[in-house]
Design a protein around this nucleic acid. Structure first.
Lengths: 124, 124
DNA sequence: ACATCATACAACCATATGGTATACTAAACC
DNA sequence: GGTTTAGTATACCATATGGTTGTATGATGT
């Protein structure tokens, strides 16, 4: 498992990487919306906005149901949970209180694995 | 604040959207690595790999320091925390036990704010 | 029946992305 | 001093992305 080959995460993170799509998600967190409602606050044409919705659908973040001439979209946040779980793996890397311990363990490991590498001092 | 205009999040989520870059982050979570170490497990040429490292640097997820001819990279996970906090906003949308309450609150809100909108029944 | 509304679809465009190959620079090693 | 070694820089390529305009379709309201 050298390269974390997870096309699902690719799609989800890519979907989140655009402000318009995050704005859509935000709107949908307030409940179901049709495409016009989703598009109107975005400073772009309607087709552009619906393309963003399609990207979100591709990532399984949005589900659409057609009612008459309206396409109602609803947030499916489960993939966000997956994304958050992936991110969560690295929590210890941003928790400051672990920094010193991390540094120590790291130096002990590098010393026994790669004796050539001298222990380094940490800044911050 | 219609469109969540946060270029930082753009960069972070985009950085996470590629398996090679997630693999690099994973490696760096085990401590400092030089570019060759980062590149070797990725099935691509060295220049391609260093481009990915640059993307991570652009998102402030990786910091590089030069020691002799080696470029040592270290994970800066703080931006991951930001990303996780953004995602966290929508936790209630994927927590099943809140679904019924969410639906109720949503219907109450839409009834008082937009009287034209008829309360919709929720599936699932 | 007709106009309007909500949306789709296609063509097109500029730029970004992800990759390659090749040539270059500078430190480390013998 | 010459050869690895580690990494950069440039040019190039195919495809993806994010946007536009214009046209079509089908449901709704009068």
């Amino acid at each position: 498992m050298v390269v974390d080959q997870s096309p699902r995460l690719d799609l989800v993170f890519h979907a989140l990487a655009h402000p318009a799509r995050r704005a859509i998600i935000r709107q949908l967190s307030g409940g179901e919306r049709n495409l016009s409602e989703l598009a109107s606050p975005l400073r772009m044409t309607f087709p552009a906005a619906t393309k963003h919705v399609r990207v979100l659908e591709g990532a399984k973040l949005v589900r659409r149901r057609v009612v008459g001439r309206q396409h109602l979209c609803r947030l499916r946040a489960a993939p966000l949970k997956e994304a958050m779980l992936w991110t969560e793996q690295f929590r210890r890397n941003w928790e400051a209180r672990f920094d010193a311990l991390d540094a120590l363990l790291e130096e002990m490991k590098t010393e026994e694995m790669k004796p050539a590498e001298q222990p380094r001092t940490r800044r911050r």
